[in-house]
């Protein structure tokens, strides 16, 4: 069961790299987060007794990352009317290729060779690590301020799964802190998006380089 969800999780991340339409990417992000919360719920139920910690984290993920953040992003997207992506800094074909390479790097080299001493459930750990890299690359390859928000949430999803896979979740207080951070970060970046658009009449962060002294 976790394998299927992990597959959905990874595919959503990869597909984001191929998508140029912002609204589609938001949907993909919501799907990825839903898969994450599914994994958390499953792990919570799978043990001999129900792990309330996992359940709580799954619920929180569902509430924040599947419902609240995508809603916020949709509303912002509609308000600033971005359906089509502004030009990418790396073309779509190459960026998908690099994405696949990153996943391969994780599966072939990083997890079996470098991080050999970390024992984890078979599938989840490489999936999580490659999603972190994919999210990072997503932020690098997109110029729109909007997509940077999506990228950072994707990275956070990867980290969250990492913690889930390796140690069975971080202490509750830290996870709460991360959620709060993320929410604030998204709001700040949302405001930034507005400001960039208001000042430069575009969401392209290339314009920000004019601010340099």
């Amino acid at each position: 069961m976790t394998e299927v969800l992990a597959f959905v999780f990874l595919m959503a991340g990869l597909l984001m790299l191929s998508g140029r339409i912002v609204v589609k990417n938001i949907t993909l992000l919501a799907i990825q987060s839903a898969a994450l919360s599914g994994i958390a719920f499953y792990l919570g139920f799978a043990g001999s007794e129900i792990s309330w910690h996992m359940m709580f984290m799954g619920g929180l993920t569902l509430a924040v990352k599947v419902i609240v953040l995508p809603m916020l992003l949709y509303r912002t997207a509609i308000r600033v009317v971005v359906y089509r992506e502004v030009p990418l800094s790396i073309g779509m074909g190459p960026s998908l290729l690099i994405g696949v390479l990153l996943v391969a790097l994780t599966y072939v080299y990083i997890v079996p060779v470098l991080l050999i001493e970390i024992h984890s459930q078979t599938m989840l750990f490489p999936v999580a690590l490659s999603t972190v890299l994919l999210g990072c690359f997503f932020m690098v390859s997109r110029r729109s301020a909007f997509n940077q928000i999506i990228g950072i949430i994707e990275m956070e999803n990867g980290l969250f799964l990492c913690a889930l896979a390796v140690t069975g979740g971080m202490p509750l207080i830290i996870e709460l802190g991360i959620f709060f951070d993320l929410l604030v970060g998204a709001i700040v970046m949302g405001i930034m998006t507005h400001k960039i658009r208001g000042t430069f009449d575009t969401l392209d962060t290339k314009e920000l380089s004019r601010l340099k002294g």
């Binding site: 690098v140 390859s141 110029r143 940077q148 962060t205 290339k206 920000l208 340099k212």
Partner: peptide, 10 residues
């Protein structure tokens, strides 16, 4: 320091 966010992220 070129001022481009993508480069910094890179």
């Amino acid at each position: 320091q070129c001022g481009n966010i993508n480069l910094y992220l890179g």
